[in-house]
Structure formats: structure tokens, C-alpha cells
Design a protein around this nucleic acid. Sequence first.
DNA 1: ATAGGGTTAG
Length: 583
Amino acid sequence: MMKRTLVPPAAASAAASSCRQPLPHKHSTCSSLLLPPPLLQFFSHRFHSTTMASDPQLRRIDFSNIKKLQDALFLFDKMLRMRPLPSTIQFTRLLTAVTKMKHYSASISLYKEMGVLGIPINEYTMSIAINCCCHLSRVNCGFAILGSFFRRGILPNVATFSTLLKGLVLEDRVPEAVELFSKLLRERVCEPNEVMYGTIVSGLCRTGNTSRATQLLRQMEEEGKCKPDTVIYSTVIDGLCKDRMVDDALALFSEMIKKCIPPNVVTYTSLIDGLCHEGRLKEVIRMLRNMGSRKISPNVHTFSVIVDALCKQGMTEVARKSFDSMADLGLVPNIITYNALINGYCKSFKMDKAMRLLREMPCKGLKPDVISYNIILQALFRCGKCGAALKLFDDMQAAGVVPDAVVYCILLDGLCKNGRLAEALSVFSMLNSKGIYLDIAAYTSIIDGLCKDGKLGSARELFDNLSSKGLMPDVITYNIMMNGLCQEGLLDEAKELLVKMEENGCMPNEVTYDTVVKGFLKKKRYREAMTLLEEMRARGFSADPSTSEIVVDLLLAKSQDPAQLEMIKRILPTSKDGVENTE
DNA sequence: ATAGGGTTAG
């Protein structure tokens, strides 16, 4: 009875071989079965319990050949036709393969199909389904699946909850993740392990709560039940580096070495990245040597970090050498390495070299992405090469790269800044009519373009209508609007806007004050300018040197009043020397 | 032979 198959073996193998033809996947599986799902379920339980380990046929299912989604779907169909039916473990392995290819929706469909067909599901299968929901930013669906655990009498475990925690983190719901984590510990729902701690630690680091993450690491050490491992140390080290606390990161690094927790290439790459951002290149070299002495080789990631840092330090040629040296280690630059170097060339105005790299990418099997194009587009506009930029924009779309909000912003901004407001406006209205989402930066560029073109009325209108589009002006938008008002001599309105922005929860910055102060100075409303400078100083901002100069010149020319000079010294520390010299 | 955590670019 156990070995009984639902279809005669000959028919089964015929069905299996016919799977090479593309199958209309969705519904073919159900109709290919001779029994309705409830009966199948009845039988598959039997197969599952006794034949799974012993049947040599099952061991032959090869998941390593799955290269694309289609392969997996064919195999799924094929598995459904195998008799006896492959075990839950085999189906779970298939789901793993689909999930690893990031076909999350497909994976969920297959999971549901398993349910419909009555193939038994266990905590592993369900955790995969939850993981897929999480990657689709549907952690609530993940919690719904958690509910089905209980209905099926299956207990969720530490992996299930780690997955859900990760899902909350992915949706920027770290406080909820922390809350759930505490609850799990408090109510002893499951014993936390390294992975669970790792998830919560990384969530905290990603949201800038590095100190809380460090606390958790210490807590793990103290409790001693589950000791922080390489991943957790690396996560906190990375968090500290991102907070510019590289020395603390280095201290933690020494600590892990002292505790015999071996750093790996990720640990080193984070530290190298942190040191690079601080411009501590000598220590980077030391770190690379240190790495070598531990027989840890840099990977593509490490090189991307180094190439990027060298480019940002203006050492594009050294970056190029580093890029080329990857081949010696058998490493192949990826799109991120390319983008870093392209960015370097763009920043040093070597547009031909940047373009050459972009053209080289397809030859190396890499498809330039929207970021590759963004970097070059922005640079072309900055060099005033509008024609070349517009052509590249067309090339990009021809290459099938879909422009995003950033590209449109670069395009609009580039056109405006190059005095091609009319074109910018026509692109702008075209995008609007197509209903393409434009972010606040894009609107800000247009407002700036309108102001600079003397169309303050239109700028103001657009500015006032931002909220109707669901957009909030940011500090740059306000600064640009204030600058426009000041240029037209509408100082009182500019000052009103300064008050209004704060009321709207937008903090003014140095540029904000500088803009308005300059406006008042230009209109010779010195008293108001000085009042604003005082306010600015009280907030810990210092005036732009050019503003300070104007003030000093004006006041020195106007008055020799020592009290006033004293005031200048106080509020314009940058110009103190100049004042003293003339005394 | 089945699930879950850390590093990169505008």
C-alpha cells in the first residue's frame, strides 16, 4: 500500500519528461493529479512518514541546476508528478532555491499551491513564506502566516521570530521589533540565539541606535548563554564606523581579537570603509596588511569601498590602479565598483574616461543601472554639456533603464542651471501629465529655475501648491524661495518665511540666515541684518565669510563707534583679525 | 540533504 502510486509509473515518467515543454504553470498542476486535494493529503502523509529517507529516487532531485525561475517552476511541476510524491523537505528545498533568486512572490505562490494540493508544510516551509512576505515589505502578511502556524498545530521557533523581526526592521519598524524581541524574552516564547540578537542589533545600528546595540552586545556577554559572534561584532563595528566613531570601532575590533572571535572580510571591510571616510588612508593600508597576515583576502566589496574612498579623496588614478589590480586576485569588478570609479572620473571632470567605463560595462557582462547614468548625467550638466546629457538620457531609456525620481531631478535641475528653463518646464509639465512622481528636490529645482529667471510669481505659486501635491518643502526649498524673495527686495516676506518654516517644523541652517542677512545688507537695513546675525550666532551658526566681510566693510566705513566694533568682534569671529588690524 | 542575522554606489 505504501508504495502504491497515484498514477501508473509509465504514465508518471511520461508526464515528467513532458515537463520540458513549457507548461501553463498555474493550473496545470492541479489538473495533472488524479485525486482531489483532500485525498492526496491523506496519501501524502503516508508517503511522507515512511518512504522519504529510503527512496533513492528522492535523493536524485537536483536543485543545483536551477538558474532561473522557469527552471524552478518546471521542477516543481515535475516533482508533483513524481510517485511517490517527494517529501516536504524536497519541496522546501525548492522554495529555498526560488527565494535565493529573490523571486519572493513566486515562492509564496508555490507555498500556497503546496497548501492547496495538501502537501504537508512544516515550520521550515512556513518560515520561508514569512521571509518572502518580509522581503516584499509585507511583514503583516508574515504575521498572518504566523497565525496559521497555531491553527496547524505547528510551533514557531527562534528562526520564525528572527524572520519576523527582520521583516519589521525592513519596514523601518525597529521600535516594534525591539518591543517584540523584549516580549519574546520576557515571556520566554523562545530562547534567543546569535541570529536573533544579530537581527535586532543590526536593526538598532541601521536606525542610528548604535549605543543601544552596544548595550545588547554587552548584555549577551554578561548573560553568557549566547555569546556575540563575528557577525554581531561586525554589525556593531560597522554601526560605530557609520557614526564616525572609528576609534571606538577599532577598540571593539581589538576586543574581539582578544576574545578569540575571528574577524572576517566583512569586519575588515567595515573598518576600512570607516577609516577611508575619515581620510585615514595610512591606517587603511595597515588594516589591509593585518588582513593579509590572517590570510583573509579582500573581496569585491572591499575593493568597491577602497575605490570609492580613493576617488572621493581625489586620488582617481590610484583608484584606477586598485580597480585594475582586482584581476590579479581573480576578482571581477561589479556594478558598484564601476559606479565608484565612474563617479571618481566625473568628479575630476574626466568625462571621456567616465563614458569609456560606462561603455565597457556591457562587454564585461554588466548592465549599467540607473545610478551609473545618474552619476554621468549630473556631471555632464555640471560641465554645461546639456546636449550630451540629453542624448545620454535617451540612450539610457533605449537601454531599458527606467528613470527614477532622482534622474528627473537631475534632468530638471541640469536644464534650469544651464539657463534652459523653457525646456525644463516642458519636461516638468510632461512628467506631471504622465503622473510620474516627482520628489521635493525636483520641485525645488524648478522653483529655483523660476526665481533665477525672474519669474518669482510662478515660483511662489508652485511653492504654495506643494502641500496639495503631498510634498513638504525642505530647508533647501525654503532657502531658495527666500533667496528669490530677497533678490526681488521682498525682505519682509522672506523674514516671514523664516518664521513660518520653523512653525512647519523645518530647521533653518546657516545658508538660510546668510541668505536673509545678505538681503537686508543689500537694502541697507543694517539693524535688521545685525539682529539676524545675533540670532544666528545664538544658534551656533557662523556667517559665511563673504557676509562677514560685507558687514565689516560697511560698519567700519560708517562708524568708528567702539561699542559697535565690539559687537562686530563678538558676532563675527571669523573677521576678528581684520577688525583688530584696522584699530 | 529543508528556514532566520552583518559590509558597497547617485
